[in-house]
């Protein structure tokens, strides 16, 4: 084989610069070429998810979407859907941070009376074969069917937690996280002014905190308490009383899935 370029300082610097320059140029151009397509895919996925979880509609829910910021920095997005001007339901992009390994993102469709119409899992990192079953487990006709249920003010709970939903076998943590996301979506839907965000929640919060914190968490999650004093982040208190599930789920973090 022919001789290689000599390893002196000048050669090394020049070659490495050339390689990195060439690499960044090619990556940048590919990125620019596919940017449009990528965005299209993202929007299509979102629209498909909305279609999957709601009855047929004829408006564009993404144009009328409404984004809410939760106190812990998450975002919920509401997609109202209507048919011939009449509201047929709302899809909510919701999440839970209580997943077994990482956050879970769901798109949940609610009919106007607050009942779950359908759902789809957008993103999760649960154990394959256990928690990952959530994408079908809670669907219509399956063991943990949540369609038609109204989470309402109580929230849906697993049978183990005194509720009526069958948790996924051997994946209780994942099931609780799933229901947490559903309840969060429902909470956002029922009172999206006071429950999740908006300036109105700011004034309402201080009174609500001291009452429910002691019994709900019994000190297991002291990290959440300091928020109360800051005021600004406690916008969610009403929703907490509504859906107390989020609190019960992180009571014992080391639980088996």
């Amino acid at each position: 084989m022919e001789k290689r370029l000599e390893s002196n300082f000048k050669n090394m610097v020049l070659v490495l610069c050339a390689i990195t320059l060439f690499s960044s140029l090619s990556v940048a151009s590919i990125n620019a070429l596919t940017a449009e397509k990528l965005n299209e895919v993202r929007l299509q996925n979102q629209l498909k998810a909305i279609r999957d979880v709601l009855p047929a509609f004829d408006n564009n829910p993404m144009e009328e979407s409404d984004t809410l910021i939760t106190p812990d920095g998450g975002t919920l997005v509401l997609f109202p859907a209507s048919r011939e001007g009449e509201r047929v339901g709302t899809a909510v992009k919701s999440y839970s941070n209580n997943g077994y390994s990482g956050p879970i993102w769901l798109m949940i469709g609610f009919t106007p009376d607050g009942a779950v119409y359908n759902y789809t899992v957008l993103e999760h990192k649960e154990t394959p074969g256990l928690g990952s079953k959530m994408s079908t487990w809670f669907a219509r006709g399956n063991k943990g069917d949540i369609t038609g249920q109204i989470p309402g003010s109580k929230g849906l709970r697993a049978r183990k937690d005194g509720g009526e939903i069958d948790a996924i076998t051997a994946a209780t943590v994942s099931s609780r996280a799933f229901l947490d996301a559903v309840n969060r979506a429902s909470g956002a839907l029922s009172g999206n002014a006071d429950a999740v965000s908006g300036a109105t929640g700011l004034e309402a919060s201080p009174g609500a905190t001291p009452v429910e914190q002691p019994d709900a968490t019994t000190g297991a999650t002291p990290v959440e308490e300091p928020d109360a004093s800051s005021g600004a982040t406690r916008v969610d208190d009403p929703s907490r009383t509504d859906t107390s599930l989020p609190d019960t789920t992180h009571l014992s973090p080391a639980r088996h899935e």
Partner: peptide, 9 residues
């Protein structure tokens, strides 16, 4: 490009 890359890098 292997011939253009000095051995050490």
């Amino acid at each position: 490009v292997s011939n253009l890359i000095p051995d050490k890098i």
